[in-house]
């Protein structure tokens, strides 16, 4: 019976929710994302309360440039789309194609992370805007940094899943794992949209 879980033939259309364990994971992960929402909401609240406490440091309106951040946003939005493709191929039991699209997702995620590191580096070196500079800088790095850490964790997760299941194909046991990893990725993407709006757009405007 246990072997049945690991077979990659005759998968139902929604392999991620075909078993009780899969259903539990799916539901539990949604709840987890609910908690994550509160976590980010708290960070956003803190940031909004402190964004004008820049002391002698550079204020948000002078610090942020939208060009780079816009590219980052596009990259992350695209990576969300590519992970949707991956899930589409998972449902059609096409492991090769799924791996391909997951690979693209990971590459996009990595480039996002690279740009973010470049951005932070730029702030620190060119503007003297470090983590400890002011309450504003602490709040900025806490919020955006938490998001960045989530991206990094998500990438590690994808890579681990891909390595483990490279030759195994899709089955009822690993389908839920792929599926919730992609859910997580979407969540990170949504959070970024809020960061883009609240931190960068509102920061530049005023």
């Amino acid at each position: 019976m246990a072997d049945e879980l690991l077979k990659s033939t005759n998968l139902p259309h929604d392999p991620e929710r075909a078993t009780l364990e899969g259903k539990n994971k799916f539901l539990g992960f949604w709840f987890f994302l609910g908690g994550e929402t509160v976590l980010f909401a708290s960070l956003f609240g803190t940031y909004l309360a402190l964004k004008n406490s820049h002391l002698d440091g550079v204020p948000a309106s002078e610090l942020f440039g939208l060009g780079l951040v816009f590219i980052m946003t596009m990259i992350l939005l695209t990576s969300s789309l590519t992970s949707v493709y991956a899930m589409y191929h998972m449902k059609n039991n096409a492991p090769k194609k799924m791996m391909l699209w997951l690979g693209i997702t990971v590459l996009l995620g990595l480039s996002f992370l690279g740009l973010e590191i470049y951005e932070f580096n730029h702030y620190v070196n060119d503007y003297g805007h470090g983590f400890t500079t002011s309450a504003f800088s602490s709040a900025f790095y806490a919020l955006v940094g938490f998001h960045g850490a989530h991206v990094a964790f998500g990438l590690g997760w994808f890579i681990l899943l891909m390595v483990r299941n490279w030759k195994r194909g899709i089955n009822l046991y690993n389908a839920p794992k792929f599926y919730i990893a992609s859910l997580y990725w979407h969540f990170i993407d949504v959070v970024w949209v809020f960061i883009f709006t609240v931190v960068y757009l509102m920061g530049v405007v005023g």
Partner: peptide
């Protein structure tokens, strides 16, 4: 933790922090 161990300024009044948060 950040304030106490990593020099952040969320709650330090002299660095623009806000204790009510």
């Amino acid at each position: 933790t950040f304030d106490r161990l990593f020099g952040a300024n969320f709650f330090d009044p002299s660095m623009g922090g806000n204790v009510v948060i």
